[in-house]
């Protein structure tokens, strides 16, 4: 069935090329790798509780001792708010641990799934893989 393979190939190609301009509306699969979980502990530098998705930024020391600022994408403000989150729930300087999935582009970016607060509270951050 060579013809259908060709059509299939074309469809994939079309999908790849047409999805590039849509990255601003980031689907999980377009930006993150569900086979690459990550868990990092660091110091919060910023929390942007904004639409369409909120972002948590943390400074993490890598193996060589260099500080890298990681950003974790999380759910929308309305979803976080309904889970008891407020814009000052996470403050700069706070030590937290974040679990999520790595970005495909190799940058210090991840899709946040779980947040471990300093007091041990676990908050589900999930967006698409785990909507909470």
């Amino acid at each position: 069935m060579r013809l259908s393979n060709v059509i299939y190939g074309l469809m994939i190609t079309v999908l790849i090329f047409t999805s590039v301009p849509l990255q601003a509306h980031h689907s999980f699969a377009a930006e993150y790798d569900g086979t690459k979980p990550i868990k990092l502990t660091g110091t919060v530098t910023k929390f942007d509780m904004v639409n369409p998705h909120s972002w948590i930024y943390i400074d993490v020391k890598d193996d060589s001792g260099k500080i890298v600022n990681w950003k974790f994408e999380t759910a929308s403000p309305s979803n976080l708010y309904r889970r008891g989150f407020k814009k000052d729930t996470i403050k700069s300087g706070m030590q937290v641990t974040l679990e999520g999935y790595l970005a495909k582009d190799g940058s210090a970016t991840a899709n946040g799934q779980k947040l471990y607060m300093p007091d041990g509270t676990v908050i589900i951050l999930g967006t698409e893989v785990n909507p909470g």
Partner: peptide, 8 residues
């Protein structure tokens, strides 16, 4: 009013 959330 709601507290701790900003919306457009």
């Amino acid at each position: 009013h709601a507290e701790g959330i900003d919306l457009f």
